[in-house]
Design a protein around this nucleic acid. Structure first.
Length: 480
DNA sequence: ACGACAGACTT
DNA sequence: AAGTACATGAAG
């Protein structure tokens, strides 16, 4: 790493700057430990320090994670790095597999990338210093470590929830990579979060700033009763539904700690499973992994001077890509209020319900329950109803969904797909230029500015300059 | 594309 | 005494 970069890191760690949390790790050669930028321990002498971009790289250099700042609970680097290198695509695919709970076959993954598994290994070795397998294992281990610290789950449950299939191997990997056995790790530090009745609580970090007010408002105006709700107007709740685990999560913002306290409650008869997926789900819905500092720096240079950026504005995700595209279809040509009304009816008619702690939970409908639905309770054009059925059919028939495929379905246009990509996949680079609100705001901006550019040029240049963060530009325009 | 080898994983 | 939970060696 270049030296001016090192100076930035030095300043960040001396200031314990949370904006750099998870973006680099400080390796201390004299102690053999690596830390986050925010570590409360007295800072190490710079001459003993080496900086790493990822936790895995630090571990690879023979260092162990610090017991105080716990690098395992730092915000992740977003899988979407904007740049379309093969390595970044590989990392994004791995992340995607993690967040859907699929197991990862490196041969299959390489095939999808159009390279051989051998070359993939080579790329990982060259740029990250490890094999893809090691990378995957280490990521699982760090999540397992988080569960050890923050929950009372038994080791076996933790191993399975972190994505290991054999406890034997989990123990072995844990011991060799992190230096301690799982129980030793747990007894070294005290659990700060006691387990809740039929659930558990995790603390999820972000890098500040975070504009919770705007995020809260966005979620609240789009909330579907029984599927999403707010306690006291501040605690956000939403249901989740996997094959074996159903329930809801409850997210409370703790601005002074740069994170959310998130409790997961499981329905009776459903097991505590899919924790890694749940963790990613909440992170995506609340957009916790965004590097807002960097994004806003880019946007500042892309927009006209008259336009003011809302600091800490995040792009809220939907519960799934399926939910996102349905929200998009029902949002065609109507107001937000109208769209939410339609969505509520759809969810209440076709989504399953279940009680947990006396709370009635409603899950977003499965694709199979929509593919032949008459949807006659919704007042909207028949073609749009057909579009919903078509999309549902596509989702039932395809194990691996590509939202771009939906473009060929009747009633699905670029706006709908882009919206779904932005909210469903967390794609940061979607510019919803065809959106009516965006269009109007852009026109107003164009007139305001004394530029000689045509509107088309004005818009095209802004779009280019905002790369790869166009989704954030879209949200900024919506909130203007 | 190949064989040798390391390491992942199971019982 | 049986059952549960965790860690680990040997071998393939």
């Amino acid at each position: 790493m270049e030296s001016n970069q090192n100076e930035i890191y030095l300043r960040a760690r001396l200031a314990r700057d949370p904006r750099f949390d998870g973006l680099f790790f400080t390796g201390v050669k004299s102690t053999g430990i690596y830390c986050r930028s925010i570590c409360p321990a007295p800072p190490a002498h710079e001459e003993n320090v080496e900086y790493f971009k990822t936790a895995i790289a630090a571990a690879n250099a023979g260092l162990r994670p610090c017991l105080r700042c716990r690098p395992d609970s730092a915000p992740q680097s977003p899988a979407w790095l904007g740049t379309q290198t093969t390595l970044n695509r590989a990392i994004a695919l791995i992340e995607e597999a993690f967040s859907t709970g699929e197991s990862i076959d490196l041969e299959a993954l390489s095939d999808r990338l159009g390279i051989t598994a051998r070359y993939l290994r080579q790329l990982f070795k060259k740029y990250l210093g490890t094999s893809p397998k090691q990378y995957i294992i280490y990521k699982k281990l760090l999540f397992a470590k988080k569960l050890l610290h923050e929950t009372n789950l038994g080791i076996t449950h933790i191993a399975l929830n972190a994505g290991f299939e054999s406890v034997r191997n989990f123990n072995h990997q844990f011991q060799t990579q992190l230096g301690l056995t799982p129980t030793q790790t747990r007894t070294r530090t005290q659990n700060e979060a006691a387990s809740t009745e039929n659930g558990l609580t995790l603390f999820l970090n972000y890098r500040p700033p975070y504009n919770w007010d705007k995020m809260r408002g966005f979620l609240q105006t789009r909330a579907v009763e029984e599927m999403e709700w707010f306690d006291d107007d501040v605690i956000y709740n939403k249901t989740f539904c996997f094959e074996e685990s159903r329930g809801y999560f409850s997210a409370q913002h703790m601005p002074e700690k740069n994170g959310f306290k998130v409790s997961f409650y499981f329905a009776e008869g459903s097991q505590v499973k899919n924790l890694y997926q749940l963790n990613s789900l909440v992170r995506r819905i609340l957009d916790l992994d965004a590097n807002i500092e960097q994004i806003e720096d880019t946007l500042k240079n892309a927009i006209p001077e008259e336009m003011e950026l809302k600091s800490g504005l995040r792009v809220s995700g939907a519960g799934s890509d399926f939910e996102a595209i349905n929200r998009a279809i029902l949002g065609q040509q109507v107001s937000i209020t109208q769209a939410v009304k339609l969505l509520s009816k759809l969810v209440h008619e076709y989504g399953e319900a279940e009680f947990v702690n006396g709370v009635k939970l409603r899950f977003f409908p499965h694709p199979h329950s929509l593919q032949e639905a008459s949807i006659d309770i919704l007042k909207m054009p028949g073609a749009r109803k057909q579009a919903i059925r078509n999309v549902a059919e596509y989702f039932t028939n395809n194990k691996r969904v590509n939202l771009d495929d939906c473009l060929s379905l009747k009633g699905i246009g670029p706006w709908t797909v882009d919206y779904a990509k932005m909210r469903g996949l967390g794609n940061p680079n979607i510019f919803l230029a065809t959106d009516l609100v965006v269009k109007n705001k852009l026109k107003a901006l164009h007139e305001q500015s004394d530029t000689k550019q045509s509107f088309d040029d004005f818009f095209e240049i802004m779009k280019q300059d905002a790369q790869p963060w166009c989704s954030y530009l879209t949200f900024q325009l919506w909130h203007l």
